[in-house]
């Protein structure tokens, strides 16, 4: 069965104990419903990732105007000059 602590850590969600209890119960209910997919024999059926008959879309590798750095940084919670500021990563 689902290990909520493991999944929450993978999803980078700090959940309260109450949230863990509620979400595990609800998600397990939903998964029980989803298990009805196993009624279908899908051996040999190609998976569909998306419906358009297209593969990679490339463009010429040429220099084009892009978002000015200042605009890109304007929504940052914390910045330092031309950089995003984050908590210390390397001790």
């Amino acid at each position: 069965m689902m290990d909520i602590d493991h999944v929450a850590a993978l999803a980078r969600l700090k959940l309260t104990d109450r949230e863990k209890e509620i979400f595990s119960r609800q998600v397990v209910d939903i998964i029980r419903y989803i298990d009805k997919l196993n009624e279908l024999d899908t051996s040999g059926i190609e998976p569909t990732a998306h419906v358009l008959p297209m593969k990679n879309i490339f463009r010429e590798d040429e220099i084009r105007a892009s978002l000015p750095r200042d605009s890109a940084l304007r929504n940052a919670p914390e910045r330092d000059g031309g950089f995003y500021r984050v908590p210390r990563i390397i001790e």
Partner: peptide, 21 residues
């Protein structure tokens, strides 16, 4: 980091987890 809410944490991972929670 790039936009939106940030909730400070003990370290980077803790900041991610609190922000998203």
């Amino acid at each position: 980091v790039k936009y939106g809410l940030r909730v400070e944490g003990d370290d980077l991972i803790d900041m991610y987890m609190k922000t998203r929670d």
